[in-house]
Amino acid sequence: MQLLTSLDYSSAEEQLDEAATSREETTCDDSFMAELLAGLSRADRAVPCRFLYDAAGSALFDEICELPEYYPTRTECGILKAHASEIAAAIGKDVRFIELGAGSGGKAEILLDQMPGARSYVCIDISPVPLAGTEAAVRQRYPRLEVSSVCGNYLGELELPKATGLRDVCFFPGSTIGNFERDDARAFLQTWRERLGPGGMMLVGVDLKKDSAILEQAYDDAQGVTARFSMNLLSRANRELGADFDTAHFRHRARYVADPGHIEITLVSTAEQDVRVGGRTFAFSPGEAIHVENSHKYAVAEFADLAGDAGFDVTRVWTDEAKLFSVQLLTAKA
């Protein structure tokens, strides 16, 4: 799962005009319909996980991050707090800190508070609302920093502001790297290796392989919050697209797939049923699933191999005592 909260989301909403927000939502709706129809038309039905994060989904994900079963957020924060000074020393001086995604739930501040060598901060996000909130909050907290933002997709083509004499350090927390299939993760890192140049760095949150029971409980909690988060995808389709998913006849399923090592999240039909959306009808049999998300887990050596293939050396790895999670510093090879 991705951590998509901003530093001051409600403040940012007040700063942006309603027309811009409306335009953004309309674009998202158009994309949602096309992606949903395409995904339901496949033999192995699937919907991209980004559509989990409407306003309701984001609020539910904030709840997930506080659940006792969901260890990634608090464990990563604990690693950063315990090792912030070491991380800052390993990164060094005269750097530009690039955060991928608007706001990391306070994680960036944990590091920036200990990084006198940071001279500049850039946030990249595809959505202008949280981007504005993050930029304003960083400006206020760190008046010494040169702060800028880029509204764009960090997965695709984008142009970074020029930064003469500074070395780039890219911050990618939250185990968001785990949302990529492994080949896509390698390609993503390779793209950023080329973008950062020799000596550039990435600081990446990487969830580690562990007992499958711990993983499955993290993605299927006893209170059912994660189930409501996943099921909200169908409710969103009903609200926004006029679909008629009967959510009482679908269930959330999270299971660990050992090879190659990921949590697979699906919404499983519990009855023979038809679903109508966009003027089309899709038949579901009992047990038929809609794939929503994979969350990949890595052994430390396994991620080092993947990073190496992408043109990075793993400089340092920090973990919690139980070795549930890791924060890894990658340095671009010459």
Rank of each mutant, 00 (worst) to 15 (best):
R193E: 14
C123V: 15
I290H: 06
S22E: 14
R45T: 03
V327T: 14
N238F: 05
S120Y: 01
E293Y: 06
I124M: 09
E194K: 13
P48N: 07
T191P: 02
I98S: 09
T164V: 02
P173I: 14
Y9E: 15
V47E: 04
F303V: 11
R96W: 01
Y219W: 06
R119K: 13
Q140I: 08
E321H: 04
G287C: 09
L215P: 04
T73C: 11
G156S: 15
I87V: 06
I91D: 00
L166W: 00
A213M: 01
R228L: 10
K209G: 07
D29F: 01
D221P: 09
N238Y: 07
N179K: 02
Q140R: 15
M201Y: 02
Q223V: 07
Q273Y: 05
G101V: 08
A84Q: 03
D29V: 13
G278T: 05
D244I: 10
R193K: 12
R186Y: 05
Q273C: 06
E264T: 03
A38Y: 05
G57A: 05
G311Y: 07
A89C: 00
E76C: 13
M33L: 15
D94V: 00
K210S: 08
R119V: 01
A59R: 14
L80Y: 10
S104Q: 13
I263W: 00
A90F: 03
I265R: 02
G242C: 04
M1D: 05
G199M: 00
S22F: 06
L112W: 08
K333E: 02
A12G: 15
L52Y: 02
D54A: 03
M231N: 04
L111H: 11
A59E: 13
Q2H: 09
G279L: 10
H249Y: 10
T27P: 01
H262N: 12
G92A: 00
H252V: 08
V225S: 05
V314K: 03
Y256T: 01
L189G: 09
Y142W: 11
T27S: 13
A332N: 01
R119I: 00
A90L: 02
E293P: 04
Y9M: 11
P72C: 11
S295P: 01
R45S: 04
M231Q: 12
L67Y: 08
T176V: 12
P260W: 11
F171V: 12
V317T: 15
V147W: 08
E24A: 10
A136L: 11
A59Q: 12
G205N: 11
G39W: 06
A136K: 14
A310I: 12
H291A: 08
T281K: 07
D184S: 14
A132D: 06
L36Y: 04
E159V: 12
N153G: 10
V314N: 03
E35M: 11
A19R: 12
E194P: 00
F325W: 10
I265M: 15
G39M: 09
E240S: 09
P286W: 06
M1I: 04
V204P: 08
F250I: 04
D113K: 13
A322I: 02
Q114E: 13
T75I: 15
E302V: 14
